[in-house]
Nucleic acid binder design. Structure first.
Lengths: 116, 116
DNA sequence: CCGTATCCGTAGGGATACTG
DNA sequence: CAGTATCCCTACGGATACGG
């Protein structure tokens, strides 16, 4: 019992590994603020300027697999696909917002520090 | 005025770019929970199992540059160096804690989803 | 004891082009 | 419109070895 405090399975690290990539948090934010709460693929692409087709697809796939986003296909021609946050996804937006507030308040200082 | 909502300079994205790497959030947590609030290099290394010498040094350097961590050198032989969170760094631990709580509560579900 | 430099593998992510 | 496959390039990060 050496008390090896740091689980390799630290949940926080796992979470940041999951949402810390280039686009995930951005898409969660977009979806959290979407009204109506459903968004199509193209619509998401427009809301996340700079994202590539590939990364949008890949990021959404991961979010769906993790249960943070729900996917609903409308069987029309051409097909429309709707993405929306699940309850789990919405619950994550809370803590993320806290981080956003912090970021909006302090990132300027950090950037200034960094540039010196 | 097309209303291009998504700043390429979205603060949240910048923040996650900064703390979303492999070790930063872990070190912030370690330092936030340190008592006394100063930790030496070796002590930090022990608290973050698996971290390489190089990454510890690099991550600390970035944290110092960003103004989240303060570095104090004790001019002894051999020299001891103390790292501690600045006020800014401590203020970040709040929002990070919120994320930690969420992670501890929900990561298991996400992992289960993911493995299906 | 503290930190940095080098070397190198791997994975994240962009451009592009192609299918249903 | 929605999504996938390929190619390629860079940056993150580990091992190791060396300097204050």
């Amino acid at each position: 019992m050496t008390g090896d405090l740091f689980d390799p399975a630290c949940p926080t690290r796992q979470l940041l590994d999951r949402i810390g990539d280039k686009w995930t948090s951005m898409l969660i934010k977009v979806l959290a603020e979407a009204d109506p709460p459903d968004m199509g693929f193209a619509s998401l692409a427009r809301s996340a300027p700079g994202i590539s087709h590939k990364m949008l697809s890949q990021t959404l796939k991961n979010l769906c697999r993790d249960g943070l986003v729900a996917r609903r296909v409308e069987a029309t021609v051409p097909p429309r696909v709707h993405y929306s946050l699940t309850d789990l996804g919405r619950s994550l937006d809370g803590p993320l917002s806290a981080l956003r507030v912090w970021a909006e308040r302090h990132m300027a200082v950090i950037d200034a520090n960094r540039r010196n």
